[in-house]
Design a protein around this nucleic acid. Structure first.
Lengths: 125, 125
DNA sequence: CTAAAACCTGACGCGGACGTCAGAGGCAAG
DNA sequence: CTTGCCTCTGACGTCCGCGTCAGGTTTTAG
């Protein structure tokens, strides 16, 4: 498939796909005229990339993880696997932090509601 | 305390503090010469702001939530409370997404390790 | 064959949370 | 009084994941 279809299938913009390739995160075979062609597997790849971006990883970091994802049997993946474990740790800490943040929000909302209750009962009573 | 100390205590840059004030997220009393002065409470405030930024909220969004945090009894907090619930939802979805992402990473790492195991046993056996 | 749609490269724009520099004043210590 | 550090405002620079326009080629539909 060509770039437009991949974009539609993966739910991203054509511009993003070209950007991913520019960053070394996505490959493509080229037709004689220079147009990019992709397979089904590339759809998965793009959604994976989206996931990583959503997890707050930068293009450079994702690029460092890809050897681990792509060629799990190569020697070079020793470092990549370690890198991945590292990022997994970061992600876990981030998740924990966000959960604490959510609790802080809950706390604020509860306090707010309590105040309002008091006001209402002061008026009613 | 002055801005440098607050920055150190809260673990952010002086520039960030001035930026927060510029965005209406942080207040300060000024000395006759114009220097900013802060109290202990401002340390908490700054860490709260950091939490919100870490949760992916923009300065503008945080500003919309502050009335709820600061003056829970005012009428204006009706909208703020609703806004806060909204952002809490967003945050929850984001957390869920990150957890799925972590699972994707785990999956990749497991696949990787399996491959390596296979290689090793092929060599050994 | 032709018009429209999709594709190409290259390059500039953008928004947001700051970093950083310039030029000036404030403040405690020796 | 001066040395040195902290602070002030204002303004420009940076990074990054794209959006978008320009100017051209390729593919597809009729």
């Amino acid at each position: 498939m060509r770039i437009g279809e991949l974009a539609a299938r993966a739910g991203v913009s054509v511009r993003s796909l070209r950007y991913y390739e520019e960053q070394g995160l996505l490959t493509s075979t080229r037709s004689a005229s220079g147009q990019r062609h992709y397979t089904e597997e590339h759809v998965e790849r793009v959604t994976f990339l989206q996931r990583m971006y959503a997890a707050g990883l930068s293009s450079r970091t994702i690029a460092e993880l890809l050897p681990c994802v792509d060629s799990p049997s190569e020697e070079t993946s020793d470092a990549a696997l370690e890198r991945m474990a590292e990022e997994r740790e970061r992600l876990s800490e981030h998740i924990a932090d966000l959960i604490r943040t959510r609790e802080a929000l809950d706390q604020a909302m509860a306090t707010n509601r309590a105040h309002r209750e008091r006001l209402r009962s002061a008026v009613t009573g």
